[in-house]
Write a protein that binds this DNA or RNA. Sequence first.
DNA 1: TATTAGCACTCGAAACATACGAGTGCTAAC
DNA 2: GTTAGCACTCGTATGTTTCGAGTGCTAATA
Lengths: 347, 347
Amino acid sequence: MEQLSERKMKILQAIVANYLETGEPVGSRTISKYTDLNLSSATIRNEMADLEESGYIEQPHTSAGRIPTDAGYRVYVDQLMQERDNEVEEMRQEREGLLERVDRMEVMLKQVAKVLAYNTNYATMITAPQFQDIRVKFLQLSMVDEEHILAVIVVDGNIIKNQLITVEEPLANDEVLKLSILMNSFLQGASLRDINIEMIQTMKVQAGIYADVLDRILNGVVEAVKSADERQIYTSGATNILKYPEIGDIEKTSVLLEALEDKNILNQLADETLNSNEKGIQVYIGGEAPVQNMQDLSVVTATYELQEGAKGTIGIIGPKRMDYKKVVKTLKELTVELDEIFNKKEK
Amino acid sequence: MEQLSERKMKILQAIVANYLETGEPVGSRTISKYTDLNLSSATIRNEMADLEESGYIEQPHTSAGRIPTDAGYRVYVDQLMQERDNEVEEMRQEREGLLERVDRMEVMLKQVAKVLAYNTNYATMITAPQFQDIRVKFLQLSMVDEEHILAVIVVDGNIIKNQLITVEEPLANDEVLKLSILMNSFLQGASLRDINIEMIQTMKVQAGIYADVLDRILNGVVEAVKSADERQIYTSGATNILKYPEIGDIEKTSVLLEALEDKNILNQLADETLNSNEKGIQVYIGGEAPVQNMQDLSVVTATYELQEGAKGTIGIIGPKRMDYKKVVKTLKELTVELDEIFNKKEK
DNA sequence: TATTAGCACTCGAAACATACGAGTGCTAAC
DNA sequence: GTTAGCACTCGTATGTTTCGAGTGCTAATA
């Protein structure tokens, strides 16, 4: 796709912008009036024919106006992003140490997804911030009753996991304390990778007759780390896509809604976003999306990052005819805000 | 609505059954062949006219077959339930102490919702088992680092909550232990109602200079109990309702899907189910549903109960033309199974 | 008296026909 | 290079016709 003349560019932008607004194919006359180019519709028609040949726009059928192709949207979005990059974003909202309790964060993220969906009228997803390589911070054991040991495991990001372990006979308090000290000395600061067979052996030997209990607690630790590693995804506003009639038949809609309900697909999307080299906002138009079933939609994703390196994703999913400008702006502001919220507590 | 003759009853049953299958209005000729009554279509027509007058069936338009009204479905379902009640249910599956960790239970309930939705092709919801009056079982404090006290609170149902409290200066280990013992002596076995201002005063006096810390821990306790009291609702298969074209226009569908996304509405539904005197399965047909926005759907709910008295709800939401027979059967089996799974651990 | 056969009638759905108009591409003039 | 003008296209909206499933009613039948 060759370089476009400035005039063609302007026309293309106008077509996309107009189509975003109305959802109807846009005709030459409309553009003639819409832009400040002062060109007649006939001239526009000629240019449009060129743009069509270059693959940026297309006609749904002869004698209809033009609509943008994926490539057309792409040009529009790229330009948009360039402009946006120059702007400086501000942060406003103030919140308090929401990371303190994991379920608090959960509530907040759900809320963010909901508000975002409501404000944009698109479907939204958000993932909880996640560490690359999660380490154990702290571990504590205590007898709850005669039969149960409670293991509390704190990992990176102050995520706290509990594990209840059933034992045949009660352990004395100081035994539990000893075990706790032993395990902490080995495990503090360790990631899953660090906990190898050798370390386990050594611990077991030192634990003596409690090797068995230790083993089961270790399982708890592994599970705690794993579950901290499990990506939490929250979605909202899936039904918003029903508002865009161009999605077409029920059949297609159904597939899309199912895709939104399917965490696996969203997971892929988050992976893709996090792994891509691009930082910040990414826009996937139609077939560009890295996942199946979203060919008829566009996805705009953003990455936010905690100071300690934990990353999360926000995504907005809507029709190709999406108000990219607004969405990109909103996401930029939001990521900044999230960074702020999460990092506040850590300072 | 007067008592129906046996023949009318049979015809009504046949109409409903047939309509459930096909989703099309059913005509007199169909019934004439469908039943073993050996009646001509003309006779059926007469009976149908009566049934229509009595309000059990209706015509979508002149010269169409009949479809059941809510009342018609009701007769069908009531009869169905009578039959079902006589049957004995069996339990099959075996699982292990899944209540041990709350998030395990979460995973399981989500899974149940998903499987149920997949198998029935309707939308499903399930709430986690909940205690009526939650009591504190156990409370534990420990210094995580110089600035943070970790409070672990275990409440009824082995639900474990953590609370991280920031303190200006570190407390010595034995101070923490003392505080822990003090609070446990007051709080063990206490429900929110028991923790009154007097008790708090007494505790504070005994806590001396740590009254402030104690106060903040108490907040954590309250939150823990409250969050254990918060009903968790999981849904799945909302998109299934798109499969039933009789729901009609996008507009209506949209409202329904939004209702399913709206936890408040589902909460009401769960409340209604749990509070009703009826035990076991309940069927709400169309307007009978205790919540708004579900006039065009039917809801079948079931209550399951843990030995300790915690109760949860399962709901299946689908078109009025639902395969009630299958749904009721499935739910019965499932509640028995859930009772089994949850209670196993407690024995 | 209850049942049934027969028939005229209704009305929605599907198939077909027509009209309208937005928008195009092309040509010729500016 | 730009524009005015015009014939042409084709999807949508609207109107018309046909078809048939199903009804209600009446009169004949068991």
